[in-house]
Design a protein around this nucleic acid. Sequence first.
DNA 1: TGCCAGGCTTCAC
DNA 2: GTGAAGCATGGC
Length: 289
Amino acid sequence: MIVEEYPHFDIQKTAESGQCFRLNRIGDHEWLLIAYGKVLQITMERKGRYCFSCGRKEFDSLWKDYFDLETDYGKFAERIPKKDLFLQKAAAFSDGIRILRQDPWETLISFIISQRKSIPAIQTSVEKLSAAFGKKIPAGTKTYYAFPRPEELSRADYDDILACSVGYRAPYIYRAAKMCASGELDLMSLSELDDAALREKLLSVNGVGEKVAGCVMLFGYHRTGAFPVDVWIQRMIDLHYDGHFPLKRYRGFAGIIQQYIFYYGRQTYDRSERMRMKIEKLDKKGSLI
DNA sequence: TGCCAGGCTTCAC
DNA sequence: GTGAAGCATGGC
């Protein structure tokens, strides 16, 4: 159990930022994370002061990097033009979010699952897969389950994967597991590649398109230049940038900007606005006919 | 009950 | 190259 001060780290925002599906709030000031075969409890003693349920060695060798605690995120926000009021607001609102260094394999499968699913539904599937095929992690009176390794998933019955509420994504998961377990796809060695080559390799996996590849690059390989565009990002770009986001301005850290837009957009965009955009789109379509 | 969800693949054209 | 259809199922 160690206590650390990180004034610019916000566990709540990070947990709610949609990049990780096994970092859950379990109390007013407590979160539970299952990652890398370990369970970590994080208690916020006060703003910027956290208690981690691990020893110094584990914290320094694993969690400090996992939460990217040594990076100064302020320098990214400073690069946003003052006149871009939307992004200024998004960055201020999201202050404290970190881009996590997650396991590439878990990130790959989690984001294959994510397509056309809500975040709670993704969490359900990830938990079901872990409980069905992952190794047990005993912790006190409770038992948790690690996310299954490729070998464990590749040995699974296809129908048992299907039973994890993954629907039509089951064959994608099954094939990815076979590829990784057989060595046909070595996710560890991909970290040697540059962004373009990594993207190409990820796109070669069935069920992985531009958006999922971007998420795996950003959250699994910490390629902060990746800019995955999902419905939320596209919605914000349409609404605030007339469909064209100035991506070049944020070369090398567009992924962090993307996360600010995603978090701010989801938290503040209401249904009436969504309806307005929908009607506008239909009108545009109608005017073309 | 119906709509929507951190999209992708396939197939026309 | 582009656009549309079809996809399984949970959560609200």
